[in-house]
Simulated assay, not measured.
Amino acid sequence: MAYRFKKSSINKSGLPPGTLVYRGEEREEEVKITIFNYNGSYYLEERKVSLEEALAYKQKDGIKWINIDGLHNIEVIKSLGDAFNIHSLVLEDILDTDHRPKVDCYDDFVYFVIKLFSYDFEEEEIDIEQLSIILGEDFVLTFQEKEGDVFDNIRERIRNQNSRLRSLGADYLAYVLLDVIVDNYFVVLDEIGEGLFLMEEDLLLDSSQDILSDIQQVKHEMIFLERSVWPLKGIFNNLLKGDNKLFKESTILYLKDVNDHIERTIDTIQSFRDIINGMMDTYLSNVNNRMNEVMQVLTIISTIFIPLTFIAGIYGMNFKYMPELESQLGYPITLIVMLAIVIGMLFYFKKKKWL
């Protein structure tokens, strides 16, 4: 799994609540701000705008979607928070990229923390980043760790004048963002499922240490995925039961559908964990069976040599009067007897299907 998380060297211990400290992967690229401003009759799209231009959109009409790619510039986050009256505790959570998924409802906005999964088909690995969404009366702010996401389809819908999204409010835009994120979980899980299927086939042919390492790796990935998705179940249940003025009744119905998708995602993850546990049991069984086969061979070899060792031991005794030692046929007769014993025991083992 391509989850590379590097903590900030700044220690937050002892700092006052609301102190803005970035805790995430170190980055040097410039923070990029993208803006969509639209309603039923027009839309405006601007990329790589300055902070001052982004702040000016607060006073404009229509729905505003301001997306920030990159959280390492604290001043940008603080300025946007001040302009849109975002609580300092929320800004603190935005900058903590290892935060647990949650939703906080305030008087003027709703704050979501959710994990964004994407599958890198070239590297064949999962990329995970934290996404923060702030829903206001006529705006949506999204904060991403880096550039690149799964929202291209949403952008195309905004550009399309006949799209239903253009005629609805900011709450519907927030729902669409959440829906795309959750739906993309299935894309990632489908790829994991294909990998598990191939791994199961390899496990039947090979029980090497490499297979065990792969199983352990996937197991850790599924634990992390479950930790990232499981809190969403409670989040949406509480959101659907609550009375939040920013979500219209019509949008609540759509959020129920997202909640159903989350339930399916959790069920899929749990079924994958059961498969992984079964693969671990299969691996251990294969190792034990292979060990039993080795022990069986060694036991048969030892059993064959017991009577031969007994005969050799008798004639290795230093007694003076052993008549057969004086016989010219003593040595070949002894070898023949020993060979007959070996053949007889092999025939017996074969008959008993021990070989």
Rank of each mutant, 00 (worst) to 15 (best):
Glu145Asp: 14
Glu147Cys: 11
Glu122Trp: 10
Ser132Glu: 12
Gly148Leu: 09
Ile158Val: 08
Glu92Arg: 01
Val140Asn: 04
Leu116Trp: 02
Asp152Ser: 12
Glu137Tyr: 12
Arg166Glu: 13
Glu145Leu: 12
Val182Pro: 03
Tyr119Cys: 12
Lys115Asn: 04
Phe112Arg: 03
Arg100Phe: 01
Phe151Pro: 03
Arg100Ala: 02
Arg159Asp: 01
Thr97Lys: 05
Gln161Lys: 14
Ile114Gln: 03
Ser118Leu: 04
Cys105Tyr: 15
Phe139Ser: 05
Asp127Thr: 13
Thr142Asn: 06
Gly169Glu: 01
Val182Glu: 05
Asp152Thr: 08
Tyr172Met: 06
Leu168Val: 11
Asp93Pro: 10
Asp108Met: 14
Glu122Pro: 09
Ile128Ser: 02
Leu116Thr: 02
Val180Ile: 14
Glu156Gln: 11
Glu122Thr: 13
Cys105Asp: 15
Glu129Met: 12
Ala170Asp: 06
Phe117Asn: 08
Glu123Leu: 06
Glu129Arg: 09
Leu116Tyr: 02
Asp179Phe: 02
Val187Phe: 06
Asn162Leu: 15
Asn153Val: 15
Ile128Val: 03
Phe143Val: 00
Val140Gly: 04
Asp98Arg: 13
Leu131Val: 07
Gln161Met: 13
Leu135Asn: 04
Asp93Leu: 14
Val110Ile: 15
Ile126Ser: 04
Leu131Thr: 04
Val110Ser: 10
Asp98Tyr: 13
Thr97Ser: 08
Gly148Ser: 09
Glu147Tyr: 12
His99Gln: 08
Val187Thr: 08
Glu145Cys: 11
Ser118Asp: 05
Asn153Glu: 14
Asp183Arg: 07
Arg155Phe: 11
Asp107Ala: 12
Glu125Lys: 06
Asn162Thr: 14
Ala170Met: 09
Asn153Tyr: 10
Asp171Trp: 03
Leu131Arg: 03
Leu131Trp: 03
Lys115Gly: 01
Ile133Lys: 02
Phe151Trp: 08
Ser167Gln: 11
Lys115Gln: 04
Ser132Gln: 12
Phe109Cys: 13
Arg100Gly: 00
Asp93Cys: 13
Arg100Lys: 05
Ala170Gln: 07
Ile181Val: 10
Val140Leu: 08
Phe186Val: 05
Glu129Ser: 11
Leu177Phe: 15
Phe139Gly: 03
Asp108Ala: 14
Gln130Cys: 02
Leu141Ala: 04
Gln161Ser: 15
Phe139Asn: 05
Leu95Met: 12
Ile181Pro: 00
Leu177Glu: 10
Tyr172Phe: 08
Phe143Asn: 01
Ile94Ser: 03
Val187Lys: 05
Asn184Val: 04
Val187Pro: 00
Tyr111Trp: 07
Asp107Ile: 09
Ile128Thr: 01
Val103Phe: 02
Leu177Lys: 09
Arg166Ala: 11
Glu156Phe: 07
Phe186Tyr: 06
Phe109Asn: 09
Ile114Ser: 02
Phe151Cys: 07
Asp149Thr: 00
Leu178Phe: 04
Glu145Pro: 08
Ile181Trp: 02
Glu125Asp: 11
Ile133Ala: 01
Val110Gly: 07
Ile134Asp: 09
Val180Lys: 08
Val176Asp: 01
Phe112Cys: 05
Asp127His: 13
Tyr172Cys: 04
Ile158Trp: 03
Asn160Phe: 10
Asn184Ala: 06
